[in-house]
Amino acid sequence: MRAIRTVKLSNWERYFENRIEFIRSKELKYLSRRKYLDAVCVYLWASAPVLITIAILSTYTVIMHEKLTAAKVFTSLSLINILIMPLNALPWVLLALVEAYVSVKRFKGFFDLQNIDMHGLYSLIEGEGKMLQIDKSTFSWTDSSSHSVKDITMTGTQGSIIGVIGPVGAGKSTLLLGILGETELDASDPTKFLEHGAIRIPQRCINEGFAYVGHECWLRRGSVKENILCGSPFQANLYNAVIRATALEHDIEKMPNKDEYQIGDDGTTLSGGQRARLALARALYQVC
């Protein structure tokens, strides 16, 4: 529904209609080829025994000029009957091989994607209380992009709050996603970058990861409690502390069944503020 609303408000109906028609026509073209191949397989399956019998007997009498006898005909027919099942299966085997080839190409394209080099991106930080350090690094979405966040140098200490302020399109999200390793990173000293990593974080973050809550709050179908735990073991003291820290107490008190209240996909049964607080509570519970 959110995507449909975006299309309607931006007046993109005609554009997406043309895109869908193009993709659908391409899909129908390949489906028609598959159906034609399927029809040929069915035809060969039904006609192969008869055609093979006619071909064998015609070759024997017309080309080789031999005389047919009852013994030879019945022997040939018995051998052909033995071969009927493999011959009938041959077209379906060919069709299965074509489908297997297409599937292998799709898997190969997926497995050939490059993984993020976490060891080359992150390294250990030096200094007591430091949680994040970036030295003159540039974040961009492509290697040749002219739109990038350049020469970023920052240090975050434990317990501090850092605000990133700027107009729309200034690169705030690019910077945050760059810290997560989702963008291209260009360090001031490439040799140092390849050897040690340009983003420095503590050992605990390297081992356990760190939490990120973006503009779009990701929530899954289930109870409020399940979304906060997100597969982690339940710890009552930590759970209650996280709820208090994210101001979810008032919201949970108003919900039917309290924290066992079932929410829909992407938190459709919650308000925008409740979704944001719930996503923040999940992030805090994972890192505390």
Rank of each mutant, 00 (worst) to 15 (best):
G272T: 10
T6D: 11
V40T: 00
T6L: 11
N115R: 15
K225W: 08
G163A: 11
L176H: 00
A283I: 00
H65C: 08
L90Q: 04
N11D: 13
G222E: 09
L238A: 15
V164K: 10
I84P: 14
A241Q: 15
P233I: 08
S145Y: 04
L113W: 04
A48V: 15
L176Q: 00
N18P: 00
V168M: 10
E128F: 02
R275L: 05
I263F: 08
W218L: 07
N227E: 15
F16H: 10
Q274P: 03
R33C: 07
L51I: 09
K29R: 10
V93L: 09
A281F: 01
R5M: 01
R221A: 12
R5Q: 06
T155K: 09
M131S: 02
A170Y: 03
D265I: 10
L176F: 01
V93Q: 02
R275W: 02
R19T: 04
H65Y: 03
L31T: 08
E260H: 06
N207E: 11
R24K: 11
M118G: 04
L176S: 01
D143M: 09
K130N: 08
S140L: 06
G214N: 00
N227Q: 10
L51R: 02
A70L: 06
G181V: 15
K8I: 03
I179A: 00
R106C: 03
T155V: 15
I56T: 06
D151K: 03
E13L: 06
S271H: 11
Y239E: 14
P49L: 05
I161G: 09
I116R: 15
L51C: 11
D251W: 14
L94C: 12
N237D: 11
M1C: 04
I152R: 00
H147P: 09
L278H: 03
E195H: 06
S78Y: 01
R244T: 15
S160D: 07
W45P: 03
A46N: 10
A198S: 14
P86V: 13
T153I: 10
I82Y: 02
I134A: 02
G129Q: 07
V42G: 13
T59V: 11
F110G: 04
L68D: 07
E99G: 01
E253M: 12
Q203E: 08
E17C: 11
M131P: 00
F111W: 10
C217L: 07
G197K: 02
Q133K: 14
A241H: 10
T157L: 13
C230D: 10
T138W: 02
E66T: 04
W12F: 10
V42C: 13
V168T: 13
A39Q: 07
T153W: 00
T174P: 01
L177H: 07
G181I: 14
M131Y: 05
N81I: 15
T69V: 07
V213K: 12
E21R: 07
F107T: 11
G231T: 05
W218Y: 06
W12D: 03
R244S: 12
Q235M: 15
Y285E: 03
N257L: 12
L95I: 08
K136T: 15
I56L: 14
K136V: 14
I54R: 08
V62N: 08
F139W: 11
I252F: 01
F234V: 00
T53I: 13
S160M: 02
V242S: 11
V7Y: 08
L177V: 01
I125D: 02
G120S: 04
L180R: 13
V98G: 08
A70C: 02
N115E: 11
N240F: 12
A198T: 04
D135V: 12
L83I: 15
I263E: 07
N257A: 13
M64P: 00
